[in-house]
Design a protein around this nucleic acid. Structure first.
Lengths: 215, 215
DNA sequence: AAGAGGCTACCCAGAAATGGGTATGAAAAA
DNA sequence: TTTTTCATACCCATTTCTGGGTAGCCTCTT
């Protein structure tokens, strides 16, 4: 496959990671220009201003996270390829991001070669997911058809929004006011979440959210 | 200060981080030879076999973590300088590691220059802690004397034990049974924790615990 | 010996969460 | 088009948490 040189944007809130990735990619003939951003908002602005082909994006970032940034970038410039890079290998997060429009997903456990392979793949229009994640993904989505074993652990956007407010310590009533809802609605959301995740109460819900990088 | 070239060992379970750090440091005249290890046990073996001056170690690793590895290395080869590298900026973890013998602590939020500065400092026998961590450290440990501004954010063992049960989703009553306490006692602990941390309710408590790696 | 910190235990009233439900309209998927 | 999912809203009884106290006992340090 023919791949022209590309302009790459690295988005990560850790300078050391940016430096590291830059150092890895700087010498590559594949790469034309390297841009960097420290958070999602900056990244979105950059892809609008500059001529960027591919984005290497961390998930956990302040201000706006990888998810929102991916959605924003894809809505404005759908041709830009987005590769998610993460420390975690959490299938539910992966699924969420692929849905948001990410083209590839690699964990930091991969080497330089795999990183370059992923870049080439997405530039050629293909998708790429790190091997380590595939089995997990299957576990989470393979069971979508048959309703027997477990359910898919899928939370809606609203539910995640509610979780964040809950974790922030707001009561149902306070969340209700903030989101212009009835407190009953907030209670229902919370109940649904707890039920579908097989949890017990708010405390365990917050722990689950923290464990699964939902906050 | 005079610094000879050094043999450096990079320990991280993520290949991409190893590659990145290697790429950053490869060109430095300061560095002689670079070694790498993917987990603590491998690192310990390497420092025994090879002539290593300085270790750049990640905290969160499988098999044996950064803490145990640091203790082991320092017990066998006290002259080897150990720099902890972490994603998190958690003061309690930092304190624990400094106690274990770490010579420096930097978060991945720092750049190449600070990394090199840290290496030079520890090789000169000094300690180094990222600026971002100092304030936190102070908050956790510095305020032990004066009781005026804020309280020291110190949690007792019992309190941390309670927090863990709370995060696991147990009610006060259930925790009481488990710990052979009165439910009143559990409630008091919980109230004390929430008060001393300036939190609002159980949900925010669990979030705090998750954020501060108390779970 | 005195004080401080930590762990324990209790009381009470009001607020909030929990665990059962039911239900409706809109949007998305089949 | 039919079905499913999502977000919304409500009811009710019971349990739990919250926030305000007080207080005894033990241990460690001064």
């Amino acid at each position: 496959m023919y791949i022209p040189t590309i302009n790459l944007l690295i988005v990560d809130d850790h300078q050391l990671i940016i430096d590291g990735l830059s150092a890895i990619l700087a010498g590559e003939p594949l790469i034309d220009t390297l841009f960097t951003a420290r958070e999602g908002r900056e990244a979105v602005n950059l892809v609008i201003e500059k001529d960027i082909d591919c984005v290497l994006m961390d998930i956990n970032m302040p201000v706006i996270g990888g998810y929102e940034a991916t959605e924003l970038i894809k809505s404005k410039k759908p041709h830009i390829k987005i590769i998610m890079v993460s420390m975690i290998s959490d299938a539910s997060v992966v699924a969420k991001l692929l849905k948001a429009g990410a083209d590839a997903f690699i964990i930091k456990n991969t080497g330089k070669l795999e990183l370059l392979a992923a870049i080439k793949k997405v530039m050629a229009g293909e998708k790429y997911v790190s091997q380590e994640l595939c089995s997990d993904l299957y576990r989470h989505f393979g069971s979508a058809r048959r309703k027997t074993s477990e359910g898919p652990y899928h939370l809606t956007r609203r539910e995640i929004e509610i979780i964040r407010y809950v974790a922030a310590g707001l009561t149902n009533q306070e969340i209700a006011i903030k989101l212009f809802l009835s407190h009953n609605t907030v209670e229902t959301h919370r109940k649904n979440i707890i039920a579908k995740l097989g949890l017990k109460n708010t405390a365990s819900l917050v722990k689950y959210a923290a464990d699964n990088k939902l906050l």
